[in-house]
Amino acid sequence: MTSEEIIEKVKAELADAIQGADLPQGDAVIFVAPDSWHAVAEFLKNDADLKFDYFSDVRGVDYLLEEREPRFESVYQLYSIDHQHSIRVRVGIDEENPSVPTVSDLWKGALYPEQELFDMFGINVDGHPTMERLIMPKDWEGFPLRKDYPLTTETVTFSYNRGFKSDLVKSKPPTR
């Protein structure tokens, strides 16, 4: 199916569940709310015409600098081995208690990238079996890929610097 046909099919079948659809540079993209994401995922996987049986990836995005509502987004990339087409699903996630349902019960391949989503962005993946740090050390504080997390921090060991906020010297913001 072409991207246009995928969008049409998804719009026809899931009119209530999806928030919108787009075709940037010819990719099929749909927008879904976290509450309906698991049902949408189940449909995308099991529908005979779509049959997205391959979980390609999920990435978190932090739109803090763009001041977008909601702040976070988790973007899923699905692929169909039989039909050779793909779709991107963008799930907007609120800043307060960010959470999204797991789809690792549908695709086992989602286990690791969903854990990384928690590790790097602090987005809780509801129903995920191991919701703990993956790449960062177990006792790490903060979520490194959030935009308000500084690029580098230095622990200050000199006593006269103790007054600084949590003993951290933040790096200069990047030049744009």
């Binding site: 390609s56 990836d57 990435r59 990339q77 086992k108 391949g109 286990l111 690791y112 990238p113």
Partner: peptide, 12 residues
């Protein structure tokens, strides 16, 4: 964000 084949294959 890199989609890394090795990363995805480790749990399997």
């Amino acid at each position: 964000k890199l989609r890394a084949p090795s990363f995805m294959a480790i749990p399997g």
